[in-house]
Design a protein around this nucleic acid. Structure first.
Length: 131
DNA sequence: TGTCTTTGACCGACT
DNA sequence: AAGTCGGTCAAAGAC
């Protein structure tokens, strides 16, 4: 990969960036575009693997919060990069971020009770399931 | 300068 | 027991 622009953070996303404030856009080497919808949490990518068994690329994300053990796996078919499947593991122990309307000191207090509302599996299987 | 992404390597589990 | 695959860590590079 030399001629292709590095698909790294901060890359110019044109006007699309305005609409994708919460999403991560990845333009891969083969010109396939993968849009990873954000869920209001700060995720750090710590690995990516090609799963041969299912012929999919899987990215591994971890929640930014040190005490938060929530993980997120985003996988997409090599032939259908737009067909994302997001899997969550664990639960967040903090409120969502990136939601200005909800940002506030009182939110942290509510986080404890909101944890139960983070039915992450419901998010995954109820919204992002594509199979 | 600091943060984040990318990629390769390593380790453990499973077949 | 050996090989393969999946998951995680760590270093380097880019913005």
């Amino acid at each position: 990969m030399a001629a292709n622009p590095p698909p790294t953070r901060g890359a110019p996303l044109d006007d699309t960036e305005e609409r994708l404030t919460e999403e991560r856009v990845r333009i891969k080497e083969d010109n396939t575009m993968v849009i990873i919808p954000a869920d209001g949490h700060g995720w750090k990518k710590y690995g990516q693997k090609l799963i041969k068994k299912i012929n999919k690329t899987r990215s591994y994300f971890r929640c930014h919060k040190m005490n938060c053990r929530a993980k997120k796996r985003v996988e997409w078919s090599t032939s259908n990069p737009g067909n994302l499947q997001i899997s969550y593991e664990g639960t967040h122990v903090h409120p969502q971020i990136g939601t200005p309307d909800q940002q506030g000191s009182s939110q942290e207090e509510a986080s404890a009770s909101r944890v139960n509302q983070y039915d992450l599996y419901t998010q995954v299987f109820g919204d992002h399931q594509n199979n």
